[in-house]
Structure formats: C-alpha cells, structure tokens
C-alpha cells in the first residue's frame, strides 16, 4: 500500500502550504464531503469505501466491520449449509461485498442456463439447503424471500415449495402428459424465475399475466431456450426446446414454475 503515513501531520501541513490556497480549500472540501458521504454511499450502493479513520490507520477497514455478504440464520440446517458450501463456493472477496445472486449474466435471462453442466449432476438436497442461504433471504420459520420479492414457503406434497419446483430441473419420462424441464441447476432456475417474474410483473414485452381463482399465472419469454419438454409427451415429440417460463403465485407466494412452449 502506498498510503500516506498518518503519523506525519507536519508533512501534510507542509505539503498544503506549498499548494495554492484555492487548491487547498478544494481538497479540504472534498475530504469533508468524503467523510460525510462515505457511510451513506456504502449503505446505498453496497460499496466498501474505507472510512476516513480507517485511511488514517485508526480503525480496521470497513470490510471487516460490515456485515458479511452471506446471511446465515441460526438453524440446524446451517450445519448442512456449511459443509455443502465449503466445497462449492469461493470465500467472498472483501473488495466486492455484493452477494452472489446478483449475476448480471443470468438476470437478463439471456444466459440463464450457463451453469447447467458445471457439475453434470442435478441438485441434491444439500445443494438446495446451500442455495437457500446464498440466493434467498430467510424470513424465519422456513420461509425465504427472493431478490424479486417471491416468497418460498413450506407446503406442497414435497413439504416445501423449493423442493416442489426442484422437480422441474429433471425429466420424468414416465409421467403422463408434458413436464417442463429447466435445463440447468436450481440456482439458475431460481434466478430465471426471479427474472421472469420481475419482467412479467412489469408487463415487459412478450410477457403475459392472468388471474385464476385465487392465483396469478405469469409467463415470460427468454431469448434462448431455458429447457425442454419432458414427460411422455416430450419424449414423443423429441424433447423440443422451451423458451418461456410459467410462474404460478398466490399473492407473492410462489406455488410452482416451469418452462413451457
């Protein structure tokens, strides 16, 4: 680090004397503005600007004192989370406090399946435990909120909505009729759901929205195929690629989501 030594205020004062008064005032004003705005900028934009005290060596850098990028609730599931995440995720970089879900490549839906073949296997239960805490914000009592505001709650035959939608990251070839299969892992699926939901709620081009006695059905198109048609009908049709996502919600509670034609 080439930071100016804080132990030498005389040197700073000497340097200021050499500057024209106009420049000295400008630097002073800029320094005061930084001191005032630094915590707010960090708060608003998630930046990690060091405080003036930290720069003068009187305080630890902000990265160490701010909250970590991943929030982990005090639940028993945490044990699973730690073991699962230790194998998969790199430690967070102190210079970039933004959490993992903010992936620009996935958020616009153009590359929603980029991580589909990274492991070559589908999501295990440990992965979904891990995923909950990386992508979703815990609300307590096994309820989670996505960045777009969708709520994932206990319910359904599988016991939790996350488990329910996990059925759509793999094919069920013996299932009668059609079965939309998302061609990727759970993380990219959740990201695609959020992306589609946001666009459909905002009535973006190509999206649809209809009410169905107590629930709302959203549809959002994607630039590239996000999955394929599975089930017995999909097998009969040669598993055609699917570029739309249907999302069923009750209020903000996600009921199900799957790719459609």
């Amino acid at each position: 680090m080439t930071r100016r030594s804080p132990q030498n205020p005389e040197m700073i004062a000497g340097a200021l004397k050499l500057l024209p008064a106009r420049w000295a005032i400008a630097i002073l004003v800029a320094a005061i503005a930084y001191v005032v705005l630094q915590p707010k900028l960090n708060q608003w934009f998630g930046w990690n600007l060091p405080s003036a005290a930290a720069m003068l060596g009187q305080e630890a850098p902000a990265a160490k004192s701010k909250q970590p990028p991943i929030t982990k609730p005090d639940t028993a599931a945490n044990t699973k989370l730690d073991t699962a995440s230790s194998n998969k995720t790199a430690p967070p970089k102190p210079s970039n406090p933004k959490p993992a879900p903010q992936k620009p490549t996935l958020a616009n839906g153009t590359d929603a399946t980029s991580s589909k073949t990274s492991s070559g296997s589908k999501t295990s239960s440990n992965d979904s435990e891990d995923l909950k805490f990386r992508f979703l914000k815990p609300l307590g009592r096994d309820r989670y909120e996505s960045p777009a505001g969708l709520i994932y709650t206990p319910g359904s035959e599988e016991g939790h909505r996350l488990k329910h939608i996990e059925r759509h990251v793999s094919d069920q070839p013996n299932r009668p009729g059609s079965h939309g299969v998302f061609d990727g892992d759970m993380e990219s699926f959740l990201t695609a759901i959020d992306d589609g939901y946001k666009r459909a709620r905002g009535h973006a081009k190509g999206t649809k929205q209809r009410e169905e006695e107590g629930m709302t059905v959203f549809e959002a198109p994607f630039d590239k195929p996000i999955g394929y048609l599975g089930g017995s009908e999909g097998a009969r049709k040669g598993k055609p690629k699917l570029k739309r996502l249907r999302i069923v919600v009750r209020d903000k509670n996600l009921i199900t989501a799957f790719p459609i034609q």
């Binding site: 009668p176 169905e212 799957f258």
Partner: peptide, 15 residues
C-alpha cells in the same frame, strides 16, 4: 401407477 383425470386447465403442466 398414477391415477389422473386430465392435464390441469389452470396451469397447463400438472396432472
């Protein structure tokens, strides 16, 4: 075996 009536008219994917 799986017993069903038809494909769901509400969501279009379920049984």
């Amino acid at each position: 075996y799986l017993i069903y009536v038809r494909t769901c008219p509400a969501c279009g994917d379920g049984l």
